[in-house]
Design a protein around this nucleic acid. Structure first.
Length: 317
RNA sequence: GCGCCGGUCGGAUAGUGGCUAUUCCAGCGGACUGUAAAUCCGCGGCCCUUCGGGCAUCGGGGGUUCGAGUCCCUCCCGGCGCA
């Protein structure tokens, strides 16, 4: 009989963290963050990482688990988060996966199996300066079937694909995912203008809380500008400001639009998943009832997750 | 009032006679199986139900020309200079 798991997703600044704590309190849960940047130590203000106080006694997992100089990817994430879930289950508590990184959520909750091909840094270095066209040719030679379905402009994917073809040969088959839990998906969404407002308000809050100071400190502690750029959004833009490439005003304006773009990309990802039941964050009671039903339902073990039976609200329109 | 420069998609910009008016940003949509806050793609005047087709368009009006965003005249608007 699969264990139940609650999943809370939504775009940035939609109120996931706060909701998660309330739900966790009410249903005796523990939280597993699903955020590709909050896994790093030291990235606090810029990732809007929940504070100790805000946690309000609820146990959180997958926060601050990696050195920000190192890359921590999906596979690392799934491994550690999977363990956390097992522990939570052992304690008899409800695991609540909360985050905005759709890829991580999917990988964890649906049990995506990644082929065992670690990043090959030597190979990547060699391929780094090749054009998309050249990479495509290489891939085609190694494995034409793999080449067929790839985005021929996306050099990063192209390189990864070459990496896999080289390690595995011609083997385009993707193993089926193995889900071990029965999830309920809650999605948080807001009308466009409202969400935009929230994003901007949070940005000015973070600026006040020392976003710039934090970024400067990270660099002083050895995070290269390159790495800060790669981490993205606030860290990228602030590092540009710190190097004098852009003014503070440009930084702020640019951040507003880039954060908005980010939120839209998140929604594009989540909209696809028809299991998600969408709510406005103010509908606390409705959300609570939905979770209540899910948690208390006698578990037949078989059958579709209840979420599928409901019609999803079309978000953000 | 005179002179000069300029008015091209929401903003910025290319285009100084020839056939499909450029690029960037914002906007909208989308992809995503080991960098995912990353990376990448599409749309973008109006109308038709799609492939596709139809009609427009470069401040307004008029003109030159086989052909004009590009040349001429005139008007309007903005900037600068001189009065």
């Amino acid at each position: 009989m699969p264990n139940k798991i609650l999943v809370i997703v939504g775009p940035t600044a939609s109120g996931k963290s706060a909701l998660a704590v309330l739900i966790a309190k009410k249903f005796d849960g523990e939280i597993i963050s699903a955020d590709s940047r909050q896994v790093y130590k030291g990235l606090n203000v810029g990732t809007a990482k929940i504070t100790h106080k805000e946690m309000n006694g609820v146990r959180h997992h997958l926060l601050n688990v990696s050195d920000s100089k190192k890359q921590f990817g999906v596979v690392d994430y799934v491994e550690r988060a999977g363990k956390a879930i097992v522990e939570i289950n052992k304690r008899g508590k409800l695991p609540i996966v909360v985050g905005g990184t759709g890829f991580y959520v999917q990988a964890l909750v649906d049990g995506v199996i990644f082929p065992d091909v670690r990043p090959n840094l030597d190979l990547r270095k060699k391929l780094r300066n090749k054009s998309a066209e050249e990479l495509f040719k290489i891939l085609k030679k190694l494995d034409p079937s793999r080449a067929e379905n790839i985005d021929i402009h996306n050099t990063r994917r192209l390189i990864r694909s070459i990496e896999m073809a080289q390690a595995l040969g011609k083997m385009p088959k993707i193993p089926n995912p193995k889900a071990t839990h029965r999830p309920l998906f809650i999605g948080l969404t807001l009308p466009k203008d409202k969400l935009r407002q929230h994003i901007n308000a949070r940005l000015s809050r973070d600026l006040k809380r020392g976003l710039i100071r934090e970024t400067r400190k990270l660099h002083a502690n050895g995070l290269s500008w390159k790495r800060l750029e790669e981490i993205g959004l606030q860290y990228r833009l602030v590092s540009k400001y710190l190097r004098g490439f852009i003014s503070k005003k440009e930084m702020t304006e640019k951040l507003k639009t880039e954060l908005w773009h980010y939120a839209k990309r998140q929604m594009t990802w989540f909209k696809r998943d028809k299991r998600i039941r969408w709510f406005d964050p103010v509908e606390m009671e409705a959300i609570s009832n939905t979770v209540e039903n899910f948690v208390s339902a006698g578990d037949g073990g078989i059958g579709p997750p209840i979420a599928v039976l409901e019609t999803a609200v079309i978000p953000l329109n």
